[in-house]
Amino acid sequence: MTYHDSATVVRRVALPGSALAFLGVLAFSGSLPATAFAMRGFDPWLVAIGRAVIAGVIAVACLKATDRPLLPPRDQWHSYGLISLGVVFGFPVFSGLALALGASTAHAAVVIGLLPAATAVCAVLRAGERPRFLFWVACAAGALAITAFTLTQHQGAFGWPDLLLVGALVSAAIGYTEGGRLSRTTPGWQVISHALVLSLPVTVPITVVLFLVTPVQPSFEAVAGFAYVAVISMFLGFIPWYAGLAKGGIARAGQTQLVQPLLNLVWSWFLLGERFGPLTVGAALAVLVCVAITQRART
């Protein structure tokens, strides 16, 4: 076999962008249940910030092992700062506090189900694309479905957990879009690594203080949950996710997020024993349909 024949085989077995993105979604789908487990032994703030420290140490080791610089080019610090604010701080803090204030993982899964549409909106704004009118109609319908669902859950009013989940939704959308954009020219693992390293001067001292002043009860399930959100949710999951967005396009590969709310519901039932009625499932399916329309009508 010649060199060119070998290269052809490699190209044929390479995963498409959507398949890579789905691997990332599969990893992220366990984040909410794992966070709930971690908070059984650790403070919500410690879980949210401490996970980034563990992932940051892994990122430093990977960058050193491959002789890559620890910091990205200075002219890209703004973009990496947005990634850090979105997925290193924003999503973990907002989603963790929402769960700590009483939101079930099933409820959180439905609200965060609008993440694909939010990511698409950010991609539109960032890339300057002009979607069709149907895109905005479907986005509005999805937002109304989520609004109706949350109102039925809280006797006609939004609660703090819902507002926090919206913050998590927006944060993730910004971090996903910016990371996917940078991954077009930089490997996805390096993008998330740089974002984590840039965050270490903030995450390390905060984590040390939280570890000293908050109660810690390291049961097996709490440690396992903490390890999952630190290693998989905060680092490994982003490797195929950003690679998929870069390879398949943020809009096209982002469609794989459609299955995340349903996967979250499955994990919530299987791991936490949560029970949810037809209203929760119906809301999740309604969001799935609306987001599917936004993806097809995006350009």
Rank of each mutant, 00 (worst) to 15 (best):
Y242L: 15
L245T: 12
F276D: 09
Q260A: 13
V287K: 08
L212C: 11
A222L: 08
G237E: 05
L285K: 03
G244Q: 08
P205D: 06
V208D: 08
C290N: 09
V202I: 15
R275T: 14
I239V: 15
G282Y: 07
S193K: 02
V229T: 13
V289W: 05
W267A: 01
G254V: 02
E274V: 02
W189I: 06
P215E: 14
Y228F: 14
L210M: 08
Q217A: 15
H194F: 11
Q190S: 12
V208F: 13
L210F: 06
G273Y: 04
S193C: 06
F238C: 07
P261D: 07
I250E: 03
V208T: 09
V223G: 05
A253W: 06
A251H: 06
F211T: 11
L210N: 10
A230V: 05
V202C: 12
E274C: 03
V191G: 02
L265T: 02
F211K: 00
Y228D: 04
S268Y: 00
S199T: 15
L272E: 03
L212S: 14
L212M: 14
V197L: 05
S233I: 03
G282Q: 10
L262D: 02
S219A: 13
T294F: 03
W189D: 11
V208L: 15
G244A: 10
A227L: 15
V281A: 14
L285H: 03
L196R: 13
A224E: 01
V287L: 11
A286H: 06
Y228I: 05
I232T: 02
S219C: 07
Q295E: 13
N264G: 15
L258W: 02
Q190D: 05
T203P: 03
A243D: 15
T256S: 10
A283V: 13
V204W: 01
L262P: 07
V287S: 10
G188R: 00
L200F: 07
L245Q: 14
A222V: 11
K247E: 11
L236H: 04
P215T: 12
V287M: 07
A246V: 11
Q255D: 00
L196S: 10
A243W: 12
G249W: 04
I293R: 01
W241C: 07
W269K: 09
G244N: 11
G248D: 01
S199E: 13
V202F: 15
P205Y: 08
F235M: 10
A243Q: 15
Q217G: 10
L258M: 04
V229R: 08
R275M: 07
T280L: 04
I293F: 13
L271W: 10
T280H: 00
G254W: 09
L200A: 08
S268F: 00
V191D: 04
I232P: 02
G237T: 05
G248H: 04
I293L: 14
G273K: 09
T294Y: 03
M234H: 08
L200Y: 08
F238S: 05
T214I: 08
F270C: 07
L265S: 09
A195I: 06
P218A: 15
V209F: 13
Q257V: 01
A224N: 01
A286C: 12
Q260R: 07
A227D: 13
E221K: 04
Q217P: 00
W269N: 07
G225K: 02
G282M: 10
V223A: 14
F270N: 00
Q295M: 12
A251D: 01
Q257G: 13
G249Q: 09
A253L: 06
L212P: 01
V216D: 08
L265G: 06
P261K: 03
A253H: 10
I206D: 04
Y228C: 04
